[in-house]
Amino acid sequence: MRIGELARRAGVSTRALRYYEQQGLITARRAANGYREYSEADLRLVTEIRSLLTVGFTLEDARPFVACLRAGHESGASCPESVEVYRRKLAEIDGEIHTLLTRRAEVAAQLGAACPGCMFGPPPDRNEGES
């Protein structure tokens, strides 16, 4: 398939595909006329990359998953290197959650000091009282 069809089927832009190629994540074969040509395997790679990017992974994080698929595994997550990326990412997210909870507690304490007796918690539902 040509680049436009791969882009359409994967839900990405042709520019993104060229960038993935430039980064060494996918490899296009060239037709006699110079057009890029891709296979179903390339579609699987791009789908894996996009799903990882969607949940906050970087292109660099995606490399072990791509390598795992290229090695013939059914899932890009079935190789030890991919599992390690998952572990690192979870640790990173846990750190971000800890930082946010600490910041929230500090802001809540400041609000409590500024407004003793004020109720605070989640914001009220904006749709309450509307018909």
Rank of each mutant, 00 (worst) to 15 (best):
E128H: 08
G76A: 06
R70H: 09
H98G: 13
G76V: 05
E130Y: 14
E60G: 00
P80K: 10
A31R: 04
A7G: 01
R8D: 06
E40G: 12
C115A: 14
E21G: 10
E92F: 13
L43W: 03
A31H: 06
P124G: 01
A77D: 13
Y20V: 03
G95Q: 06
E21Y: 11
Y35P: 10
G24D: 08
G11E: 01
A77N: 10
G95S: 09
R36I: 01
L69C: 00
E37H: 07
G24T: 07
E74S: 12
S75Q: 12
Y20Q: 05
R104G: 13
R9M: 04
V46W: 00
Q110G: 15
E130K: 14
G56H: 02
R70E: 08
N33H: 07
R44E: 11
A62Y: 01
V85Q: 04
A28G: 07
V12N: 00
L59N: 02
Q22R: 09
E84M: 10
R63L: 01
V12Q: 01
D61Q: 03
Y19H: 07
R88S: 12
R88V: 12
A105C: 08
V83P: 11
L59F: 03
A10I: 05
G129R: 02
A67I: 03
L100G: 12
S75L: 05
Y86I: 15
E128D: 13
A91S: 12
S78P: 10
L101I: 15
N127G: 12
L25V: 02
P122C: 06
D61F: 01
R50K: 03
L52N: 04
G121S: 02
L45W: 04
H73A: 10
T102S: 14
R103H: 13
I97T: 07
A31M: 06
I3E: 07
K89Q: 14
S78F: 07
A67H: 06
R30D: 11
F57S: 02
R9T: 04
L111A: 10
V12I: 01
E106T: 15
R36G: 00
G4I: 00
P80V: 11
S75R: 07
R9S: 03
V66A: 00
Y20T: 05
Y35T: 09
G11Q: 00
T47Y: 05
C118T: 12
E40A: 14
G76S: 09
I3D: 03
E128C: 11
L17A: 11
V83H: 09
P64Y: 05
C79W: 07
E21C: 05
G95E: 08
H73R: 08
S51V: 03
C79H: 09
A91C: 13
M119W: 15
R126Q: 06
Y20R: 04
P123S: 14
G24P: 04
V12M: 00
L6T: 01
E106D: 15
G72Y: 07
K89N: 10
V66F: 02
V55M: 02
R87K: 10
L59E: 02
A71F: 11
G76C: 09
Y35L: 08
S13K: 09
E130S: 13
